[in-house]
């Protein structure tokens, strides 16, 4: 307060203060208006930074960014570098197909980010020795499955997981899961874990991921203690590089796909137990490459059946029956695969 204010009467000093406050408010409003106008002008001249930043904060944006980082790190290994071609082929195909389907359906939102993520996952799982047309075909099957195999508006199966399993059985595609950094020194493993935690936190799936990994490791530990498995596929192998990396990659980036997995924590836990039990069971029984994908798709099936039952109950539900609670799922826009 000024010296003049100290000598004035209380009434006058109050009115002066109000006047000054009003001036300050007007000035602040002017500044805000100017800033907003400048911001609009700036955005109109450079529309991308804000939009990109907003996109990267979405689940799809986060997973795309994280997987792109894993792609760069994974490509440091010479033998995995040819896999980048597959990633490009898969992303291009999946993105184009997703875009085409969006145009045909006259979707308001045409950005094929879901297709791009699907293509990226497909490319990071397929071996670099696989020819790029096979990667493109796998990505096309993935996008096709997303739009065809549905319960309501949601896909039944994780698109990438479905396509990878199908092409593995149909064409014996090589799957090295090089995006899990298994070919790099073990000191790089924390990068995968940190990247996975970033995505898991973004989609709020910690119970799902941690339950899957806990159950998966526990079952393998029990199997090792009981000497289960066969000579070529011991439980110990699944707990070591490179196979443990594949399990982490699947848990972080495929199991957590919002539209094909439950939203509520309780259902997330059950979903993961199904995936882990089936995965370990298949691994111990027959080994091979498909056990993680089979576990994932089995859990997807469980989730689809559960959702279909819930929908049927909801359809037959009378308003006077009282409130019922259903798992709230992110919409298709939040889905990242």
């Amino acid at each position: 307060m000024s010296a003049q204010g100290d000598t004035d009467s209380p009434v006058r000093s109050t009115s002066v203060a109000i006047e000054r406050g009003a001036r300050r408010t007007d000035a602040a409003r002017d500044v805000r208006t100017r800033r907003a106008r400048d911001g609009r002008e700036s955005r109109s001249q450079h529309p991308s930074p804000g939009a990109i930043r907003r996109f990267l904060k979405t689940p799809k944006g986060t997973v795309l960014l994280v997987l792109a980082g894993l792609l760069v790190v994974g490509a440091m290994h010479g033998s995995d570098r040819p896999g980048v071609v597959n990633v490009i082929a898969a992303m291009t195909t999946a993105g184009a197909l997703d875009l085409a389907i969006g145009i045909i359906r006259r979707n308001r939102r045409l950005l094929p980010d879901g297709g791009l993520v699907t293509g990226l996952i497909v490319g990071l799982v397929l071996s670099g020795t696989v020819h790029w047309p096979v990667a493109a075909l796998t990505a096309a099957i993935a996008v096709g499955s997303k739009h065809v195999l549905k319960v309501g508006r949601k896909p039944i199966f994780n698109p990438a997981g479905f396509a990878l399993l199908l092409t593995l059985w149909a064409f014996h595609t090589g799957q090295s899961w090089w995006g899990d950094l298994a070919d790099l020194p073990p000191v790089m493993l924390p990068i995968l874990v940190v990247a996975g935690y970033a995505v898991t936190a973004r989609v709020n799936k910690f119970p799902q991921v941690l339950t899957f990994l806990g159950t998966y490791f526990l079952l393998l530990t029990l199997a090792a203690s009981l000497h289960l498995g066969n000579s070529a596929y011991t439980p110990g192998d699944a707990l070591r590089i490179p196979l443990v990396n594949a399990a982490l990659f699947m848990a972080f980036f495929m199991l957590t796909d919002p539209p094909t997995s439950p939203g509520t924590y309780g259902d997330q836990v059950t979903f993961s137990v199904v995936a882990a039990v089936i995965s370990v069971g298949v691994y111990l029984a027959v080994g091979g490459l498909a056990y993680l994908l089979i576990g994932l798709l089995a859990a997807n099936t469980w989730q689809a059946v559960r959702a279909a039952r819930a929908k049927r109950r909801q359809t037959g539900h009378r308003p006077n029956d009282g409130p019922r609670t259903f798992a709230v799922q992110p919409t298709g826009d939040d889905a990242f695969v």
């Binding site: 526990l218 090792a224 707990l239």
Partner: peptide, 15 residues
């Protein structure tokens, strides 16, 4: 989860 993994790793170490 890390403890479970470490146990499994140790148990399956010397096959």
């Amino acid at each position: 989860v890390g403890a479970i993994y470490a146990s499994g790793y140790a148990v399956s170490g010397e096959s």
